[in-house]
């Protein structure tokens, strides 16, 4: 029996306290007065009635300060009196400088990550656990950084203008975006019910926006990933499988390329349907 389940340890757990209670600082008068707004009787410390604080007594002289900072402050006040702005930030300076305006998009709390990364992270998310998905994404990027540079397949060309393979691992965000954008389909088939005659639906190719294309491509990648087996165990396994598939896409080994080809083929085959009488006005 583990010691935790022992009945006596349960009793001792009732009085578990490793160290003495920390002593609270003595509450000052302000702390006592706080929260007593509806209390009509003041609980400020007793003081002799009529006694004024020493600074309000007529015989007390104002203390004379003479320091360079004080001089500067007085000068500033004089300048304000004359209608000049003495607290000009360009004169005063800031510890870390002013932020550049307009603010770069990364400074916005909701746009702090790359747009592809943001979208893909949300596609990785299961059960609404965004923080876990973000950690997974960080692990994916780390995997891409540490894996050897991909060996590109000329039969599966990446997007035109892609950097050479040796540059990819050190820019994992670009690596991931490049993989997804390269396998993303350009069109999807939309079925119009019953228009092809005989109750058949008429497949019409529709163009996709960039975000839609990425979503489809990453959905395909996730389909492959979910069927894959993990090599090891632990929480890094799912992100590692995703990352392995990303590498496979860039190297042209992945089955996702075939899906893209298939969609494009049927798109080309059905492009005549765009001229169908019933479709013409709709698309």
């Amino acid at each position: 029996m583990p010691p935790r389940l022992n009945i006596w340890s349960a009793c001792s757990a009732l009085s578990t306290r490793a160290r003495a209670f920390a002593r609270l600082p003595q509450p000052g008068p302000a702390a006592l007065a706080r929260g007593l707004a509806d209390n009509t009787t003041s609980r400020l410390p007793e003081s002799t009635p009529g006694a004024l604080p020493p600074s309000m007594l007529p015989e007390s002289e104002p203390a004379v300060y003479s320091s360079s900072e004080n001089e500067t402050a007085i000068n500033q006040l004089r300048m304000i009196e004359y209608g000049l702005s003495s607290l000009d930030p360009t004169v005063e300076g800031h510890k870390y400088g002013m932020p550049e305006l307009p603010l770069p998009s990364q400074k916005h709390a909701k746009h702090r990550y790359d747009s592809v990364i943001t979208q893909v992270t949300r596609l990785l998310m299961r059960d609404g656990k965004l923080a876990k998905a973000q950690r997974d994404m960080a692990i994916i990027l780390n995997y891409l950084r540490t894996s050897p540079p991909p060996k590109l397949d000329p039969a599966r060309p990446l997007l035109p203008g892609a950097p050479p393979a040796s540059h990819l691992p050190l820019d994992p965000v670009l690596y991931l975006a490049l993989a997804i954008d390269s396998v993303a389909p350009l069109v999807k088939m939309r079925g119009f019910k019953g228009l092809a005659g005989g109750g058949k639906s008429l497949d019409v190719p529709m163009p996709l926006r960039a975000r839609q294309r990425r979503r489809t491509a990453f959905g395909w990648i996730l389909d492959v990933v979910n069927k894959k087996k993990s090599k090891g165990s632990g929480r890094t396994m799912f992100p590692h499988r995703v990352a392995e598939e990303i590498v496979a896409v860039v190297e042209g080994r992945s089955g996702v390329w075939d899906k893209r080809t298939q969609v494009h083929k049927s798109g080309t085959g059905n492009r005549a349907n765009l001229n169908h009488m019933a479709i013409k006005g709709m698309v």
Partner: peptide, 26 residues
């Protein structure tokens, strides 16, 4: 087809393996 099942301890070894260098790093 589940392929080859991992041997006992193999998955843990994969989890605990230690890599000390990254050839991509400058």
């Amino acid at each position: 087809d589940r392929g080859r099942t991992p041997l006992p301890g193999e998955r843990k070894a994969y989890r605990k393996r230690i890599t000390l260098s990254n050839d991509n790093a400058i």
